[in-house]
Design a protein around this nucleic acid. Structure first.
Lengths: 147, 147
DNA sequence: TCTTGTTTAGGAATCATTCCTATGTAGCAA
DNA sequence: TTGCTACATAGGAATGATTCCTAAACAAGA
């Protein structure tokens, strides 16, 4: 994923969003990351360039981008929100030790059918599979395995 | 799911847990619910019987039960933790309007294989599918659809 | 350029959850 | 049955992510 500033501005306009330096920088940082950063991660990343940036603005911006459909929230536990600008259908693998989230693009997972036993009028809009487990390094340091 | 008090005490003993009235009541309330209640929900449900019960105790108890493997945490968004004593493999359907969580027992979903493209030493311990959408009542009240 | 509605920054408020600590009690052993 | 001890409970305070509020700054259309 490699978006130029112009691409981003066009994307914002297409969604009826004003294009501001902060907003662009936050979105850019998110697009260029595969680490599913938290609001604070993004704040730390963009702060050096915009020292006046407020964490508040990061939250506000992420909210705006989410409502515009440019960004989605990913959850592992209820502790804090993590964000993802990868909008192609994909799933996640979560390490329960270091809480890393990896993307899984396996196309077989995109062909699940609606589950049986639902109320008839329930409309599924999307689904995601979350695989949980332990990555290599975490498996080798048993201390982290305790939950 | 219908567990007697004796069943619960045996279950606790089997896990090396002390059996106290509060702990039993909290676990019992959770086992008998399919609503994936929050800590506060459980507190509200058990409180009338144990007026001295502390919300603190509910959190502590849920933590103990989780570590013992009797209870799992379910997340929809990062807002608050919701709990489930249904340990048989199952998945969830989440209404984005009213935030209701329904269980999905469709056995086809329990046969997913490990996704491709993972680091070789990553060990998957379990996975869950989360279907998201809108239930009938929420589809009919468009106000709730705005996210 | 001017105007207006949106965006930003900063501080305060909220709220779920955790921490701390003194008292209570389950469960074991004598 | 009784006493001991480690774990459980209750209550209050602390934490920390997120939201709310407000005034000043600014993007974008007229």
């Amino acid at each position: 994923m490699n978006l130029s500033l112009d691409d981003i501005q066009q994307k914002f306009r297409g969604c009826g969003l004003k294009s501001t330096p902060q907003r662009t920088a936050i979105y850019r940082a998110l697009v260029h990351s595969t680490a599913h950063p938290t609001a604070e991660d993004l704040f730390a990343q963009v702060s050096p360039t915009y020292p006046m940036l407020s964490l508040n603005t990061v939250y506000y911006t992420l909210g705006v981008l989410r409502k515009a459909g440019l960004v989605q929230e990913v959850n592992i536990g209820h502790d804090r929100a993590r964000f993802d600008a990868n909008l192609s259908p994909h799933h996640h693998v979560i390490c329960l030790g270091c809480r890393t989230i990896l993307d899984v693009m396996d196309p077989r997972l995109n062909r699940l059918t609606s589950p049986s036993g639902l109320p008839k009028d329930f409309e599924i809009t999307n689904y995601q599979v979350a695989f949980r487990g332990y990555c290599g390094p975490c498996r080798r340091s048993p201390l982290l395995m305790a939950t």
